[in-house]
């Protein structure tokens, strides 16, 4: 349980730029080091976190905590992931507001953003074989990517549409056997 708290505290502390920026950290800590989930499960948690109310990063933390240590684990992981931002933001609101426009910080974060871009791309390639399988997988991936890129449709709708698409091969197979 302590490890659960520490892992998510660390992830909360180093997540810059929202839910998907957290993905490389989750993959490293949760899948590779702790083996609390597989890459596939992580994708499932993201899709569920995307379609349910609330913040994706928090949802994924709750999910993993609950799966491994029950309800108490879910609460603990959630607390751990929000605690770093609560502390930091309280400090900023209290004393550091001016400091935020510091030149060094700006340069540091410009650097971090570049690393985060590379990290997300790396995670994408790591997960590719497990996430996109066969012609069906390629088709769904390509359609989702094109729709996202050109039509700027809500991610929630994409996930729901993909879920329904997942049922299609099964239905087609059943019709054939009839």
């Amino acid at each position: 349980m302590l490890q659960l708290f520490l892992s998510f505290f660390k992830i909360g502390l180093f997540t810059f730029g929202g839910g998907y920026a957290m993905l490389p950290l989750l993959q490293d800590e949760i899948v590779r080091r702790r083996r609390w989930a597989t890459d596939e499960e992580l994708m499932d948690y993201y899709s569920i976190g995307q379609c349910t109310p609330g913040i994706i990063a928090v949802n994924v933390a709750t999910f993993i905590g609950t799966r491994h240590y029950g309800k108490a684990g879910g609460c603990l992981a959630t607390l751990a992931i929000v605690l770093p931002s609560m502390i930091i933001i309280t400090l900023i609101a209290a004393v550091l507001a001016r400091y935020m426009h510091n030149e060094y910080l700006t340069h540091a974060f410009a650097g971090i953003r570049i690393a985060v871009t590379a990290l997300i791309l790396n995670t994408f390639f790591d997960m590719w074989k497990k996430g996109v399988k066969g012609y069906f997988g390629y088709t769904v991936f390509a359609l989702a990517a094109v729709i996202l890129f050109f039509f700027n449709l809500s991610a929630v709708l994409i996930v729901i549409a993909a879920a329904l698409t997942g049922l299609l091969p099964g239905i087609a197979r059943r019709k054939k056997t009839k």
């Binding site: 839910g19 570049i114 871009t117 997300i120 996430g131 991936f141 990517a145």
Partner: peptide, 24 residues
């Protein structure tokens, strides 16, 4: 359902990477 969602999540990940890349 999950088998349909996973490739779509991969597209979301790629898109998130693209959005951050535009800032970075």
């Amino acid at each position: 359902v999950l088998s349909g969602i996973r490739p779509a999540v991969m597209a979301l990940i790629l898109m998130a990477g693209y959005e951050i890349a535009r800032l970075a």
